[in-house]
Design a protein around this nucleic acid. Structure first.
Lengths: 144, 144
DNA sequence: CAATAGTAGTTGCTTTTGTAACTAACAAGG
DNA sequence: CCTTGTTAGTTACAAAAGCAACTACTATTG
């Protein structure tokens, strides 16, 4: 956006980012929603546990930037769906170690593959160099 | 994201976009929220009316990709705050022409300036060439 | 070994969003 | 005119997010 000339909402970076994020999230969201009745936070929790192994809710919060109440509710929902099991730590009973059940692991595998396909399809119209650059830009903005 | 190697959530484009969008939205959102008690949709409605002049709710929906119920509620809220006035069209009484009041125009001017400053500050760490490229990438993804 | 403070996770309540059904107004055909 | 269809905008209800207070537990300090 330049200094003087009139600018449109499409020139405003937060708006542009939100539109792009919305556009790309819809498709994949539809997948895990229709197929497993999962919410976005649930998918993210499954991802973290499937990708990095057992951890506590606190760990998930730290890694994912999701607020603890959202994690708490997602864990509850995943437990209800039998995709996740909790084990209270004998050392410190405030901690619960979270892990995927066999069913949860199958869900993770499926979503992980689908995410890869989805990402690839979405990025197909960009050259590899463009993709790398875009990812780098976004990482900088997101603070990774 | 490559084909075989393990990838992290930060490599998944929808996630990356959402994180970047969140990160950049927070700051500006805090501004119009604390200063004018406005929601994001209200800011967008003000923007459209301030930037392009009078139009109907339908027009705003078409331009902004916001659902009509959200627009309807934002218009109501802005009217309550005396930032917006509606005029029923004498030609077709289903249409209402929406316009900013004097107070609404002041709000728009302030937010417009602030948006420009905010965008500039955020993009300052990118070179002009990088900025152009980033905007172009995002426009393509968002479908503009 | 109280008393205080801090941490992990949950619950309750309020705000916001999403979806679908609804009202009111116009349009067109018979 | 009267059906039938369409459009602009609203409302009602359910799903989800945000925030603050709460419970249960552990750590620290005097």
């Amino acid at each position: 956006m330049k200094d003087n000339p009139a600018f449109d909402l499409e020139d405003f970076m937060p708006y542009l980012l939100n539109q792009a994020a919305d556009a790309t999230s819809r498709g994949f969201e539809a997948y895990y929603k229709s197929r497993y009745g999962m919410l976005r936070t649930e998918w993210r929790v499954v991802f973290h546990l499937g990708r990095y192994g057992e951890m506590t809710a606190k760990d998930i919060c730290a890694r994912s930037r999701i607020h603890k109440t959202k994690v708490s509710r997602a864990v509850q929902a995943l437990e209800d769906k039998k995709h996740l099991k909790r084990t209270q730590s004998p050392v410190d009973r405030r901690h619960e170690h979270l892990g995927l059940t066999a069913s949860g692991k199958r869900v993770f595998e499926d979503l992980y593959q689908e995410a890869a396909r989805f990402d690839a399809a979405m990025m197909a119209e960009f050259t590899p160099a463009e993709q790398a650059q875009l990812r780098s830009f976004l990482s900088r903005i997101a603070g990774f």
